[in-house]
């Protein structure tokens, strides 16, 4: 009996502590904010920078916490399971749509409240230097040899796969997709084991400069600031191609409006800071700040596009 009494008194004390915490939170933020990061690589590097930047403008510690796995599913699930307080935010991306349409999580983008978009990354199509002069030569070859052109992707249903599908649909050709896991595109191209690959420009830039690989086209409407020499698909006559990977901040739906506003304001200040601009040039991403309303529209529009595309590719579950 004594033990039961002890345990219950501890529980009561704990619940009081926890309770007082949530009541004290009338001024946001009154404690640290946890930012879930879904991926490694550039997503993580930029995420860590953004967390540091928010910290300065928000007046509270922002802790970036890695919750990788399942193409973002594990991290989204975590946020979905947390209270909608604004103390748990996620460094999100188009993966919010791919995880849902790919059947990895049972909830879609509407589970989250958009806060602000921060950046975009533009995939580019690259080939080995000397193999194809431009996109038309590549298209002509692929038309003559349907299903012969080997295109490297990170994996089925990955963003590089979806982008490739959009590009080659626009060219009107059938190709052979090779999944090779993450990040090996440059070597596979150099060795001639694959003919083309869609990846982030940072992976190709140095090889392009050295004349070993050639970036043929970018998939954004405007040219990429860090690689102004690469034409866009739209310039090359494929008007419908517009795919970019956006990254931004979101919280769980139902988070108090003023909490979202506070983070949004901090994000806005950081997005135009010299540090963020310098980082964008070094790491190779574009700054693209959108407020919560515009960001919400962007997510919804992208979700429709991605859902349709994955359905066409037979990846929708």
């Amino acid at each position: 009996m004594k033990i039961v009494k002890k345990i219950s008194s501890i529980l009561v004390a704990m619940s009081l502590l926890l309770g007082s915490n949530s009541f004290a939170a009338d001024k946001f933020p009154s404690k640290y904010v946890e930012m879930t990061v879904l991926f490694g690589g550039t997503a993580k590097s930029v995420g860590q920078l953004v967390a540091k930047g928010l910290e300065k403008n928000l007046g509270a510690t922002v802790v970036p916490v890695s919750r990788p796995g399942g193409g973002g599913a594990v991290g989204y699930k975590y946020i979905q399971s947390r209270p909608a307080s604004g103390y748990d935010i996620v460094w999100n991306s188009n993966s919010v749509s791919t995880t849902f349409h790919g059947g990895k999580v049972p909830f879609n983008f509407k589970t989250f409240a958009p806060i602000a978009a921060m950046s975009i990354e533009v995939p580019v199509l690259a080939v080995k230097a000397g193999s194809f002069k431009d996109i038309n030569e590549l298209a002509a070859y692929a038309k003559k040899n349907p299903g012969k052109l080997k295109v490297g992707i990170s994996g089925k249903g990955a963003f590089t796969h979806l982008t490739s599908a959009i590009i080659f649909d626009a060219l009107g050709v059938k190709v052979n997709y090779i999944s090779y896991g993450k990040g090996k595109a440059p070597t596979e191209l150099l060795a001639g084991r694959i003919d083309a690959a869609v990846q982030w420009p940072g992976q190709f830039r140095s090889f392009d400069k050295a004349g070993q690989l050639k970036m043929l086209a970018a998939t954004s409407p405007k040219r990429i600031a860090s690689d102004p020499g690469v034409p866009t698909m739209q310039e090359l006559g494929y008007k419908k191609v517009d795919v970019t990977m956006w990254r931004g901040l979101a919280a769980k739906k139902g988070t108090p409006k003023d909490h979202i506003k506070a983070i949004e304001a901090a994000a806005k200040t950081y997005a135009s800071s010299p540090e963020f601009i310098a980082a964008s040039k070094k790491i190779g991403f574009e700054i693209n700040y959108l407020d919560s309303k515009a960001f919400g529209k962007k997510i919804a529009a992208d979700d429709k596009k991605i859902g349709q595309l994955m359905k066409n590719l037979g990846l929708k579950k």
Binding site: G69, G71, A73, V74, V105, K156, A158, S179
Partner: peptide, 21 residues
């Protein structure tokens, strides 16, 4: 966990957490 190449889930029993393998 999740198979990166085909994007297929293996032995996860519908549990999102298990996707991390």
């Amino acid at each position: 966990g999740i198979d990166e190449l085909e994007g297929v889930q293996r032995f996860t029993f519908g549990n999102v957490q298990m996707l991390q393998g």
